[in-house]
C-alpha cells in the first residue's frame, strides 16, 4: 500500500548519520519528507501531539540504539504507552552499527520493530525496503 505522504523520521544522535539517511532517502526518492531527530526524547515529543492529527505522522521511523540519555530501547518502552492511533501508523526499523546478538534479539522480540538494519543506510538497503 502506497502511503499518501511519504514522511519518514530518523532518530539518531549522530548528525552525520542523520544527514546520510536524509540524503539517501531523498536521492532515491524513498521519502518526500525526512524528519531528523537528534534524540529519542525529541522524537517522542514530536510524535505525542500528533495523535489527533494522524495524517501528519511519519509512516516509517528509523531508530538508532546507542544514544545518550535515552537509548533506542528506552524509546520503544515509552512508545508502548503512546495512543494506539500513533502506534498503528508508524513502522519502526532499527538502524544501528551494533552487531550484538542481544541487540538483534531484543529488537526482533519487540512487536513494534519491523526490521533490524546495520548502518550505513545506502541505496541497496533502501532498495530492499521498497
Amino acid at each position: 500500500m502506497e502511503p499518501k505522504s511519504r514522511k519518514v523520521m530518523v532518530v539518531d544522535d549522530n548528525q552525520i548519520d542523520l544527514y546520510i539517511a536524509e540524503m539517501v532517502m531523498k536521492t532515491t526518492k524513498f521519502a518526500d519528507e525526512v524528519i531528523c531527530m537528534g534524540s529519542a526524547r525529541e522524537a517522542l515529543d514530536y510524535l505525542k501531539p500528533l495523535h489527533d492529527r494522524p495524517e501528519e505522522l511519519p509512516y516509517l521511523i528509523f531508530l538508532d540504539i546507542n544514544m545518550p540519555e535515552m537509548t533506542g530501547f528506552d524509546f520503544l518502552n515509552e512508545y508502548k504507552s503512546l495512543p494506539e492511533n500513533i502506534r498503528k501508523k508508524c513502522i519502526i526499523m532499527m538502524l544501528t552499527t551494533s552487531l550484538d546478538e542481544n541487540d538483534r534479539k531484543l529488537a526482533e522480540e519487540n512487536v513494534f520493530v519491523q526490521r533490524f538494519l546495520n548502518k550505513p543506510l545506502d541505496k541497496d538497503k533502501i532498495a530492499q525496503l521498497k
Binding site: 549522530n14 552525520i16 548519520d17 546520510i20 539517511a21 539517501v24 552499527t97 546495520n118 548502518k119 550505513p120 543506510l121 545506502d122 541505496k123
Partner: peptide, 8 residues
C-alpha cells in the same frame, strides 16, 4: 559506518 555512509 558514518564514513561508509558518506562514501555511499
Amino acid at each position: 559506518s558514518s564514513m561508509l555512509g558518506v562514501v555511499g
